[in-house]
């Protein structure tokens, strides 16, 4: 029997075609099926080597699931499979209107925290979610239809901005709740 390639890409591991648009119910199902087979709980009474392998596989499957489930991580991963570096740390050239909007939102966030204004946070969070959904759609078209990798990398960079903002909004909620 041929040995499975532990390093094979996540789309193959989950037997999902390597596209941005995925069937998330199918992904969830595969994830559960795979974990049901390899999870350490199924091997705790077996030999050490089986336990070790089980932990490695289970870890790998968790990593794959996290990567494919998140639209941003999935987009980034698809690009990396094409050899495209999204340059999220190094490439700071962003369209001016996008940067302006980001600055506005960040100011709004600071104001909301200062004023302890939960409703303002809700509005901001909602706006950020909508913008994220719009960019995800755009990223999908760039990856699956026009195959414009450079534009897609740009969208990934924008989405990373929005994700950071979402994290900050989330800690702002924690702060106002304490």
């Amino acid at each position: 029997m041929k040995s499975l390639d532990f390093q094979q890409d996540f789309f193959r591991l989950f037997e999902i075609s390597p596209r941005f648009a995925i069937d998330s119910a199918a992904l969830d199902q595969r994830y559960r099926d795979l974990q049901s087979q390899v999870h350490p709980d199924k091997f705790s009474h077996l030999s050490e080597s089986e336990q070790r392998l089980s932990m490695q596989w289970s870890t790998r499957i968790n990593e794959g699931y996290q990567t494919l489930r998140s639209p941003l991580a999935r987009g980034r991963y698809l690009l990396s499979l094409q050899g495209v570096d999204t340059q999220e740390e190094t490439n700071t050239a962003m369209p001016l209107d996008f940067l302006m909007q980001q600055m506005e939102w960040r100011e709004a966030l600071q104001d909301a925290i200062a004023a302890k204004d939960m409703d303002a946070l809700d509005v901001l969070s909602d706006n950020n979610r909508k913008e994220t959904a719009m960019l995800q759609q755009q990223l999908g078209a760039q990856l699956d239809e026009s195959h414009d990798h450079l534009a897609a990398a740009g969208s990934v960079r924008k989405l990373r901005f929005l994700e950071k903002l979402a994290e900050e909004i989330s800690s702002a909620y924690d702060e106002l709740d304490s």
Binding site: M1, S3, L4, E15, R30, D33, L34, S36, Q37, V38, L46, S47, E48, S49, E50, L53, S54, W57
Partner: peptide, 22 residues
């Protein structure tokens, strides 16, 4: 040493488990 001797076998069983799930 028994644990050592079963490493490849364990690998094969694990591979089969993964294929089965798929």
């Amino acid at each position: 040493s028994l644990n050592q001797a079963t490493v490849i076998f364990a690998q094969a069983r694990m591979d089969r488990s993964v294929s089965t799930a798929l």
